[in-house]
Design a protein around this nucleic acid. Sequence first.
DNA 1: AGCACGCCGACT
DNA 2: GTCGGCGTGCTC
Length: 651
Amino acid sequence: MTDLPVARVLVDSPLPQLDQLFDYRIPERLAHAALRGVRVRVPLRSGGRIAQGWIVELAERSEYRGELSEVDDVVSEVPALMPEVWRLARAAADRAAGNASDILRIAIPPRYVRAEKAWRSAESDPGPLPETPAPIDGYAPGRVQQGIAAGERMSLAADARPVRLDSGAWVGGWARTVAQAAAHALAHDRSTVVAVPDYRDQEQLESALAESVDPRRVVRTDARQTGPARYRAFLDATADAARVVIGNRSTVYAPAARLGLIVVVDDGDGLHSEPLAPGVHSRDAALIRQEQSEAALLFVAHSRSVEVQRLVELGWVHDVPLRRGGRPRVVLTEQQAAPESGGARIPSAAWREAQAAVAEGPVLVQVARPGHTPMLVCDRCREPARCSTCSGALVVPRAGGAAACVLCGTAATAWRCGVCDGTKLRAAVVGATRTAEELGRAFPRSRVVVSDGDRPLLRVRAEPQLVVATRGAEPIADGGYRAVLLLDGERMLLRESLRVAEDCLRWWSNAAALAAPGSPVFLVGVGGALGTALATWRQAAWAAEELETRRTLRFPPAVRMASVVSAHDRLAAALERTGAIDGVDVLGPTPIEEGLERAIVRFGYGAGAEVAQRLKGEAIRAATERRRPVAGRRPGRPPVVRVRMDDPDLP
DNA sequence: AGCACGCCGACT
DNA sequence: GTCGGCGTGCTC
């Protein structure tokens, strides 16, 4: 029951000009239900249509100079929007020049009436809290515990060994660490939210949590659940018992009572990047949420993302090294293939050891993922070709078209290779599938199983077998693999992306961490700093060097970037106003499709808030200003400015 | 997005 | 005179 007569409502709309709070009068008949955080129906535009929205706050009176409309109805009496989640959504949207309602759509699952009724009538027994917090082992004694208690931001090097749980199940060492950290927070009656890349990580984490946490205290929210199950899990998280909420990238927005810990597992994984507008990365959302709350923040990964490395160098995130635990035995080998390995082209040393290992237990073979990326390399030295103006990757935008830079659009007419000074470009077709059959011929007596993006396996048993997996789809093996072959390193590096090297180091590290302690990990055909980083297991040092390179190039995450898409004139006007901000420069614009151009706005972190605000203003201006300045209508394309900030696929 | 308001051409 | 055309602007 509220005696405050005014509801301030965020309307559910993707329109930038509606991304503000609207005041409505609460009629007497709804006073009992119109609470903060509930979903409501409200009229938008006098007597016109009805929109849905959220009551974000209640007020005694309105500042609005005009007659208020009435809240039409309360959709659900459950306050699904918690105040902290609203603050987070607002801040995340502001940072990304987007709409808060778009964030809320990601944060709050669709409502199911039956699931809600069942939840409301259910006895809510959340089960006991863990009594004695399990020690978080592998790190300096008490280090992580203290960090959690102090609300610290930490980057943990994950234990690179598979570990056996009490239940007999095998999980990656990271899963046990995260479970221990969550149990620790829970023992102090604080909630934890954990965002993992995919459901396979989630399965491991869930088994690890079962060791120390009552299952009623664990809430899982994943894409594989049915709608009602997902909504039910969400409602459980809104209750005032402390819980461990685990799920994918959107879990960083989960409601949680007395949040004590936020965990992002393997933040470099592309699955942490939200494809839906406004495209806020879970790492960024986690950082905002940590700042707004008293919770600690934990990044856990085998390799360090360049983004986290930047935060570590700033002193904002603290590096927590692994004191005790696995470091895979990595062997760098030449591409020189053993003739016996046939079409699989495996170097002889690796082939011999793999032959021996597969007699004992499972052997993992990591291959590239099929795909076709038309990119250009230097004809002489095969290095990926980079733009001589801004170092963006060179591509052929259309078949038969001329080579140009993906970033600034400069045509590569007088191109010169930065590595060998060659002048000829060559198209490289990447990603022919290396088949399991080739390996079957190379290992004639072994069972071969395949795990790929379409049919990924979660785990394999400790039996002799050859496990062929595309990068990112490697199953965990009971007891660990007896050998790991990273076969397509060279091919993986041939991708048109600023982040190839970083991604490769992460894929290799994650696969290497599946090896049994002491078992060999062969990285084939890759040497240099990247190979050394894997072999010495010094991913953070590599990230530091990579960050230094990005600084000299003025590439993310040394700076931030936003892509802005609009029609020629409008884009030019928007860029003129945005480019005038201090520390902002503009790359492009380049034509992308008929009538549209794209420009990249590059800016320092200090200018981020102002750039976002300005670009949001341009989006509103485009959506509300007179639609067509000149006579003569042009049907179709609405006059919009599309903004995406920090798009990881940008360069 | 939708929908109302407003200022210029053919109409009972 | 005025019905309604779509360009323009707003949404508590």
